[in-house]
Each structure stands twice: as C-alpha cells, then as structure tokens.
Amino acid sequence: MRTNDKVTGVVTAAFGAAVIYASLDLKNLPRQDYGAGTFPTVIGGLLVLFGAILLLRGLGNREEWLAWQHPVPLMHFILTLAAICASVVAYVYLTPVVGFPIVSFVLLSLLLYTFHHRRWLPSMGMALTATAIIWGVFGQLLHVPLDLGLLEKVIYS
C-alpha cells in the first residue's frame, strides 16, 4: 500500500506532538538549563516540522490518499515480522555479553542482506556505517552507555 504525503504528514506531525506532550513532565537536571525532556522535545519538534512539510507537499498533488500497489504474501509478512522481533530479542540478550558494536553490526548486516541487497559487501558496509554513526551520536556525543562486551578487554588491555 502506498499512502499519500498528506496521510504520512498528519501521522508524523501527530506523533511529534504526542512526543512533545509526553516529554513535558520530564524534569530538568540540577544546575542545568536542560533536562531529560530536552532531547525528546527537539525530536518531537522536528517530527512536527517535517510532518507539516509533508502535509503541505501532499496538498499540492491530486493523488489518492491510499493506493494498493501489489499484495504482500502473508508468509513473507510473517517471516519479516519474526526476523525483526528475533533481532530485537537477540540484541537485548547478546549486547551485554558480546557488546553493542559487534551485535549491532552483525544484526544489521543480516537484516540488510536478507531484506534489501542480497549482497554481503553493501550490506556490511551500510551496517558498519550505521553502527559507527549510532556509536558516535549516542555513545560519544550524548554519553549513553553502550556495552563494549568482548571489545572492552581488547580496548582497555
């Protein structure tokens, strides 16, 4: 199914507004101008902004709101959903032991290979890039603790 930009824009903006509303109760840190609600509020504001842009863009065309492109086989949908759920479970259980960089790289490589490229080199390249960006933004810039697992002994020995 393909949705018009009007639908996507409204849903995105509504989700952004809900994120902003939910982050209003989060308290500021002591002696800080910002707190736990800062990051979600910024993300929510960007979702509202980009949702509004999509909505305005969608109002300019005369496409149908929803259009079926081609049917998705039920078994393909179930296998895709199962693979994503299994990846989340594997991430939760393997990350403390093996570490974020290895688990993230392996899971993203497998998912990209399976669902998108069907070639290992591009899948692994994109997985490595995504893992590095996530590590840089969350681990280094935002100081979110990401487990090193096995790499901790290698890096700190």
Results as ranks from 00 to 15, higher is better:
1 M>S: 09
6 K>C: 12
7 V>K: 07
8 T>N: 06
8 T>I: 11
9 G>A: 09
15 F>N: 04
16 G>T: 04
18 A>Y: 11
18 A>G: 10
19 V>T: 09
24 L>A: 12
27 K>H: 09
35 G>W: 02
35 G>I: 00
37 G>I: 03
39 F>V: 12
39 F>E: 01
40 P>E: 05
40 P>W: 06
41 T>A: 10
41 T>C: 02
45 G>R: 04
47 L>M: 10
49 L>K: 11
49 L>T: 14
52 A>Q: 01
52 A>I: 13
53 I>H: 04
53 I>N: 05
55 L>A: 14
56 L>K: 10
57 R>P: 02
64 E>G: 10
65 W>V: 06
67 A>I: 08
71 P>K: 14
71 P>S: 12
72 V>I: 14
75 M>E: 02
75 M>N: 05
76 H>R: 15
77 F>K: 06
77 F>D: 00
80 T>P: 01
84 I>Y: 14
85 C>G: 13
85 C>W: 12
86 A>G: 11
89 V>F: 14
93 Y>C: 07
97 V>P: 01
106 V>A: 15
106 V>S: 03
107 L>E: 04
108 L>T: 06
109 S>E: 01
109 S>V: 07
110 L>I: 14
111 L>A: 12
113 Y>K: 04
115 F>Q: 07
116 H>T: 11
116 H>Q: 13
117 H>Y: 11
117 H>C: 07
122 P>D: 08
123 S>W: 05
123 S>E: 08
125 G>C: 11
134 I>N: 06
139 G>Q: 08
141 L>W: 15
141 L>E: 01
141 L>P: 00
147 D>N: 13
148 L>I: 00
149 G>E: 01
153 K>H: 14
156 Y>A: 09
157 S>P: 09
